[in-house]
Design a protein around this nucleic acid. Structure first.
Lengths: 306, 306
DNA sequence: TCACACCTTGAAAGATATTTTCATCACGCC
DNA sequence: GGCGTGATGAAAATATCTTTCAAGGTGTGA
């Protein structure tokens, strides 16, 4: 057990991973466990002081539930969660001042808005990186690399992310299309077959317009990939591979689109780099070619001018 | 005791104080306790893993001695020393390991790719936030808020950023259009007049297709804004307001599109929040309305399902 | 609508870890 | 050498954590 405990501590003890895990896993937990997870995420330093019994009391649950929550969060038991909590609190207080973690207010000066947004997106990136399942990513990269054809579905803000991915894949010679029209998406999806890849991007995990084409592709035998903030959402039903993005609290002036988009783009970048690595022989010259092709679209001023 | 424990934790939990305390107090301790104190100072992270019994064994002493040592070091008991140890270890290692700052290699495992990309984008965000000129941002927000009409120009990856901005502005009732077709952009630009806003997004600062429409708008008397990584580029010539994004080294597998896009999106978010603040009366209900309008596009599964 | 199966939950028993107690031992001083 | 003082660890006592189990929900399919 010592060995196990040590490893788990080394892995998860590292800072923001904890908050990420809570945010990612909380929605899939039963209610009592959610309460515990939220208490822990809300006040890590404070909770690090509490015994199982005390934390159970504070959250109005039982010791058993607290221990179960600790397990779900990836620790061997409450004791280790508590250690991680203390570690996390220490790391946090050495970093950002509390003010930037606060919500954005209507009367915040712009300087604060900048700081808060930047902090938030940085946090989201860290959380997403920590929560991304490498084996799933591996699977997605493999599927994309081998695909005859790639279809990407996304609506609204996620549509832009999809376009971003497609732009990148095209640049290294893959055949990819982005669809944001649900009807056309389904129409195209039924053309897919085994060996093709369908990739759905949805923050909520329940966007019908994106799930439908994914399902169609799934039924046709294509490999389906989902980039979603809710791995327990409906989209998971038709996804062979699930890439989870961090979910952050949203508020009036901080719409979900912002941080979810950042997470999604990170995942997209990881996919792209992964594919580029595996097709390097081909991708490298393709990338340079695309740079050169754009050169004349820039004005003659030396880039280092002035 | 809870209160005492909490205070002692808050005080001593903080960093190097621990090593100093050991050095100060060790000479005055009996031999066995010295061994324990030294073990703790030598390897805080490691000791944080150990139970009293284990630490007693490692130092060749007894549980009682370990507890006594913890007391002398100022903690109510071993449990609290252990928490402090974990916190201390976390604080020490909190800096990013050098490896993530290295370039992405073709044979990097995906886990490294994730870490490197995330680190890079986080750094970019921090740089952009630090480098953003608040007065310029203020000017841009003011111009957008008052604008009769807003045209946004962007090509390639920047086109997506432009679309993102337009999507957001539309949602709070502003009249905005994104143009990625250079001809149409110019055609539309000449329709602009004083009080309107033209906004160009270009990482290089020298993208002809984006500068041309901006120039047209500038000549017609519209307020022109540039979001660029090169405030000394050609685009600056026709920009009343310049918002600078951080530029990061790029490399073969880490195309500029990635980090520049992240910077641009941060600036876009700042613009959006700034405008939303200034038009709050109108923006808030508009935002809620747009959320509600989308509700039926999500499948009926309860968000807390499972 | 009802019954079934499965999940969630807390109480209490069980296991571990921590703290305290206490007897022993070592060391230095008279 | 005897005696007192403090250091030390074994073991008991306590606190803390973990597991088990039965009761109570919840959703599902007949």
């Amino acid at each position: 057990m010592t060995q196990n405990a040590k490893e788990s501590f080394r892995q998860r003890g590292t800072g923001p991973a904890l908050a990420a895990k809570v945010r990612t896993l909380a929605p899939t937990m039963p209610r009592s466990m959610q309460r515990v997870a939220e208490a822990v995420a809300a006040d890590p330093a404070g909770c690090a002081q509490l015994t199982v019994t005390a934390l159970a009391q504070r959250t109005g649950t039982s010791e058993a539930t607290v221990v179960r929550t600790a397990r779900v969060l990836g620790y061997p038991g409450y004791r280790d969660l508590r250690l991680a909590l203390a570690a996390f609190a220490a790391q946090q207080q050495s970093g950002a001042p509390a003010s930037v973690t606060a919500d954005i207010a209507v009367d915040d000066p712009l300087a604060d808005v900048i700081a808060k947004l930047a902090h938030d997106e940085r946090q989201t990136l860290a959380d997403t990186a920590a929560g991304l399942d490498v084996s799933q990513l591996e699977a997605a990269v493999g599927a994309l690399t081998a695909a005859r054809r790639i279809d990407v579905y996304g609506i609204g803000a996620s549509a832009l992310v999809g376009q971003d991915l497609v732009q990148k894949l095209l640049r290294i010679g893959l055949i990819a299309h982005a669809h944001s029209d649900p009807h056309l998406a389904v129409t195209n999806a039924v053309q897919l077959r085994q060996g093709d890849v369908a990739l759905a991007i949805t923050h909520s995990g329940n966007t019908v317009d994106v799930i439908e084409p994914l399902r169609a592709a799934f039924d046709r035998g294509a490999t389906t990939v989902a980039i979603t903030g809710r791995p327990d959402g409906a989209v998971a039903r038709y996804a062979d591979v699930i890439l989870t993005t961090a979910v952050r609290r949203e508020s009036e002036l901080r719409p979900a689109a912002m941080s979810s988009r950042t997470s999604q783009l990170l995942v997209v970048d990881c996919l792209f780099v992964g594919v580029a690595q595996r097709t390097y022989e081909h991708a490298a010259p393709a990338l340079s070619a695309s740079y050169e092709a754009l050169a004349h679209r820039h004005s003659p001023e030396a880039p280092t001018a002035r």
